[in-house]
Design a binder for these strands. Structure first.
Length: 460
RNA sequence: GGGGGCGUGGUGUAGUGGCUAACAUGCGGCCCUGUCAAGGCCGAGAUCGCGGGUUCGAACCCCGUCGCUCCCGCCA
C-alpha cells in the first residue's frame, strides 16, 4: 500500500513542480532536499566576492546557508550580485549539494537565479552581526529596534517567550483555569491612583489599568473559580531603572477556595517549574550556544522564608537596611537574599512571606493584627511577583480600606463583589519580562521586551 | 522626585592643557578559483553633544544646558 502511494505521490509532486510556482524551502530543512532545486528566501548575511567565484550566505529564521556562484557561468548575474548589500532581502533558486568542506552545515547551494526583494541601504545604522565589542549602546539599538531584533539573541529570546507563554497556558488549562481579558480602560482610579495614566474619554476622563486585580477578583465572585490573564498594564511611575517600564505584560492568576496563601505559592512554583522544563526541552541547546549557560529547571518546593527570617539572614550576612525599611526590603536586600538562599539551598527562587500590613494593599488578608497572608517571589535576586490570599469578607475588607485611608465611595463597585457569596481566594501578578530577564540572565529589562516603554521612550 | 556616571568618524573605544585627534569595525575602490567571523593593499569619513568662561593655547579645566545611563524611592 505504502509503495503505491509513494509512487502516486511522486508523480503528483513532479506534476506539481512542473506546473506550479515553486514553494519556499526553509534553510533549516535543506539537508532533506539534497540534489534538489529549491527556492529559499532570506537576508544576505555576508557576500564574499572573489575574482572568479562569489559566496553568498543567506539567513532566514531557521538558519544560514552558503550559496555559490561561479562567475564565468553568468557574468551578468555576477555583476548584479556584486551590487548586493548585506542585510538585503533576497529570493534565491539553486540546487542543494552536499559539501563537507563547507563549514556552514556541510551544505551549499549552486546558484541558478536570484532576485532582490528589498535592497538594504548602505551603510547600515549598525551591524547586527558584527563584533560583540562593537555592539551599540542599548538606547541606540532601541532606536533601530527592527535591526536589533535580527540579532540571533533576540530571535531566540522571543521564541523562548512564546514557549514560556504556551507552557503557562498548558499548565493552567491542565489545572482547570480559564483565560480572561479584562478591560484596560477604567472609569475611576481604583487602588492608589498615584501611578495612573489619565486620558480624555469623550466628555469625561478614563484611566489605563495598572493591574487587572479587581477584575480577576470579580471573576471569583462570578463563580469562575480559577482564572488567568496575560495582558498589558500601565504604570505612570517615572522610574529610571534597568527593571521598570511604564507599560508591561502582566501575568495574573486568581484561584478560589484556597485555604491560605500557601495554595497560591505551591501552584505558582509548579507552574514555573513546568515553564522552565518546556523552555529547556525546546530551546536548552540553543540557549547554551547563544547565551552561554545551561538552563536549570528549578526544584519544588521553593524555599519560603518569613519577613522576620529574611531580616535575620540579612543581619547574619551583614547587610544594613535603611531605618525606614523595618518591615520591608530594598532592592539591595533582595539581591543579597537571593544570593544567600542560592548558596544555602541551591535554589534561584525564594518566597518571602508574612509581610506587614503597613506595606501591603488593603485587600491582602491579614494574618493576626499586623501581618498579612501575602508573599513576594524573588528570582535571581529580583522581585518578580507579589501575591496573597485576598480578604473576601465584606466587613473586614471595608474596615481595612478605611484603615488605609481609602474612601469607600471610589471602590464601592469593588466592595460589592463581596456581598453575595464570594469564596475565599488568592492569586498573584508576575512580570513577564522580569521572568524572562531572570531566566536568560539579561541585565536590562529593555532587552527582554519587544518594544520598551518608559518615561523617556514612546518610539518606535 | 533625589544622587552618581558618561557624551570623540556610522558604530564601539583610546586620547585628561600644546597632534595634521588614534585604533577596531563598518563603508567605497582595487587585488585574490573555494572562501567560510576570509585575506591583502588603498581611500573617504569626527570642527570631540550644545552655549559660555579660564588660558598664549581646551576633546581635556570651570559654569550652564540638553541627551543618555545606573542607583535610590516605587514596584512586576
Amino acid at each position: 500500500m505504502s509503495l503505491r502511494y509513494t509512487l502516486i505521490d511522486s508523480i503528483l509532486l513532479f506534476l506539481f513542480k512542473e506546473t506550479q510556482k515553486m514553494e519556499r524551502t526553509l534553510i533549516g530543512e535543506l539537508r532533506s532536499h539534497l540534489e534538489e532545486t529549491v527556492l529559499i528566501k532570506g537576508w544576505l548575511h555576508v557576500l564574499r566576492d572573489q575574482k572568479k567565484i562569489q559566496f553568498l550566505v543567506l539567513r532566514d529564521r531557521t538558519g544560514m546557508v552558503q550559496i555559490t556562484h561561479w562567475k564565468p557561468n553568468n557574468q551578468e548575474l555576477a555583476d548584479l550580485i556584486s551590487t548586493f548589500t548585506t542585510e538585503s532581502a533576497l529570493t534565491v533558486v539553486g540546487k542543494v549539494s552536499d559539501n563537507p568542506s563547507v563549514k556552514l552545515g556541510g551544505l551549499e547551494i549552486q546558484l541558478e537565479s536570484i532576485s532582490v526583494e528589498n535592497l538594504a541601504e548602505t551603510p547600515l545604522p549598525f551591524e547586527p552581526f558584527g563584533d560583540k565589542d562593537n555592539l551599540p549602546a542599548l538606547d541606540f539599538r532601541l532606536d533601530w529596534r527592527y535591526m536589533d531584533l535580527r540579532r540571533t539573541e533576540n530571535l531566540l529570546l522571543f521564541r523562548v517567550q512564546t514557549t514560556m507563554e504556551m507552557a503557562l497556558r498548558e499548565f493552567w488549562i491542565e489545572n482547570g483555569f480559564m483565560e480572561m481579558h479584562s478591560p484596560k480602560l477604567m472609569g475611576s482610579p481604583s487602588e492608589s491612583g498615584a501611578e495612573l495614566f489619565e486620558l480624555a474619554y469623550f466628555d469625561t476622563k478614563a484611566y489605563l489599568a495598572q493591574s487587572p486585580q479587581f477584575y480577576k477578583q470579580m471573576a471569583m465572585a462570578g463563580g469562575f473559580e480559577r482564572v488567568f490573564e496575560i495582558g498589558p498594564v500601565f504604570r505612570a511611575d517615572p522610574s529610571f531603572t534597568s527593571r521598570h517600564m511604564t507599560e508591561f505584560t502582566s501575568v495574573d492568576m486568581e484561584m478560589s477556595w484556597v485555604e491560605s496563601e500557601e495554595d497560591v505559592m505551591s501552584n505558582q512554583e509548579r507552574m514555573l517549574q513546568y515553564a522552565y522544563k518546556r523552555v529547556k526541552e525546546l530551546h536548552g541547546e540553543e540557549i547554551k550556544i547563544v547565551f552561554g549557560f545551561e538552563l536549570e529547571v528549578p526544584q519544588v518546593p521553593f524555599p519560603r522564608i518569613t519577613m522576620s527570617e529574611a531580616h535575620q539572614i540579612l543581619k547574619e550576612v551583614g547587610y544594613q537596611l535603611p531605618p525606614d525599611k523595618k518591615n520591608d526590603l530594598d532592592p539591595g536586600a533582595e539581591r543579597v537574599l537571593g544570593e544567600t538562599i542560592k548558596q544555602r539551598t541551591g535554589c534561584d527562587f525564594v518566597f518571602i512571606t508574612e509581610w506587614s500590613f503597613a506595606v501591603r494593599p488593603f485587600y491582602h488578608m491579614k494574618k493576626g493584627e499586623k501581618l498579612t497572608r501575602s508573599f513576594d517571589l524573588i528570582a535571581g535576586g529580583l522581585e518578580i511577583t507579589t501575591g496573597a490570599q485576598r480578604e473576601h469578607r465584606y466587613e473586614v475588607l471595608l474596615a481595612q480600606a478605611k484603615e488605609k485611608g481609602l474612601s469607600p465611595d471610589n471602590i464601592q463597585f469593588y466592595l460589592d463583589f463581596f456581598r453575595y457569596g464570594c469564596p475565599p481566594h488568592g492569586g498573584y501578578g508576575m512580570g513577564l519580562s522580569r521572568l524572562l530577564m531572570v531566566m536568560l540572565k539579561l541585565p536590562n529589562i529593555r532587552e527582554t521586551v519587544y518594544l520598551f516603554r518608559g518615561p523617556n521612550r514612546l518610539q518606535p
